[in-house]
Amino acid sequence: MNLHPIIRTLGFYLLVLFYFGAGINHFLNPDFYIPLIPGYLPFPRGINIIAGILEIVLSLSLLIPSFKKGALIGLVVLLILFIPSHIYFIQIGSCVEDSLCVSPWIAWIRLLLIHPLLIGWVLLYLGQKK
Score class of each variant (00 low, 15 high):
Leu78Asp: 03
Ile83Val: 15
Ile87Ala: 07
Gly21Ser: 12
Lys69Thr: 14
Leu28Phe: 12
Gln91Thr: 09
Ser59Met: 01
His4Trp: 09
Glu97Ala: 14
Arg45Gln: 11
Phe18Ala: 00
Leu117Val: 15
Ile7Asn: 02
Ile24Leu: 15
Leu15Met: 15
Ile114Met: 12
Tyr125Ala: 00
Ile119Met: 13
Leu63Glu: 08
Leu81Ser: 09
Ile64Asn: 07
Gly120Gln: 08
Leu62Gln: 07
Leu58Gly: 01
His26Ile: 10
Asn25Asp: 15
Leu3Asn: 05
Trp108Gln: 08
Leu111Phe: 15
Ser61Asp: 06
Glu97Met: 04
Ile80Arg: 00
Leu124Asp: 00
Gly23Ser: 12
Pro5Met: 03
Tyr88Ala: 10
Tyr88His: 13
Gly46Pro: 04
Phe32Tyr: 13
Leu58Cys: 02
Pro42Thr: 09
Ala107Val: 06
Trp121Leu: 05
Ser59Cys: 04
Phe12Lys: 01
Ala22Leu: 10
Arg8Leu: 07
Phe82Ile: 15
Ile106Pro: 00
Trp108Pro: 00
Ile7Leu: 14
Cys95Asn: 14
Leu54Thr: 08
Glu55Lys: 11
Val77Asn: 06
Gly93Arg: 09
Ala71Trp: 06
Phe27Gln: 08
Glu55Asn: 09
Gly52Cys: 07
Glu55Tyr: 07
Ser103Ile: 04
Phe89Pro: 05
Phe18His: 00
Leu81Ala: 14
Glu55Ser: 12
Pro35Val: 03
His115Gly: 06
Tyr125Gln: 02
Ile109Asp: 04
Ile6Gly: 01
Tyr19Leu: 03
Leu15Ser: 05
Ala71Met: 05
Leu54Phe: 09
Leu41Ala: 13
Pro30Asn: 09
Pro116Asn: 14
Gly120Pro: 05
Ile80Leu: 13
Tyr88Lys: 09
Leu15Thr: 00
Lys130Ser: 12
His115Ile: 00
Ser66Asn: 10
Trp105Gln: 10
Gln91Ser: 10
Pro35Tyr: 08
Arg110Ser: 15
Lys69Arg: 15
Ile6Tyr: 15
Leu79Met: 13
Tyr40Trp: 15
Arg8Gln: 09
Ile50His: 02
Leu41Gly: 13
Leu41His: 10
Arg45Ile: 07
Tyr88Glu: 12
Gly120Asn: 06
Ile92Lys: 12
Asn2Val: 05
Tyr33Ala: 05
Val16Pro: 05
Ala107Asn: 07
Leu3Asp: 11
Gly23Phe: 05
Gly127Ser: 10
Pro65Asn: 12
Gly11Trp: 06
Lys68Met: 03
Leu58Thr: 08
Leu123Asn: 07
Leu54Arg: 02
Asn2Ile: 02
Leu28Gln: 10
Ser99Glu: 11
Ala107Gln: 01
Ile92Phe: 10
Pro35Gly: 03
Ile7Ser: 07
Leu124His: 04
Tyr13Asn: 02
Ile109Gly: 02
Gly74Ala: 07
Gly21Ile: 04
Lys129Arg: 12
Asp31Lys: 05
Asn25Met: 14
Asp31Val: 10
Ile6Lys: 12
Leu75Lys: 00
Gln128Cys: 08
Ile7Val: 15
Ile6Arg: 13
Gly52Ile: 06
Pro44Asn: 09
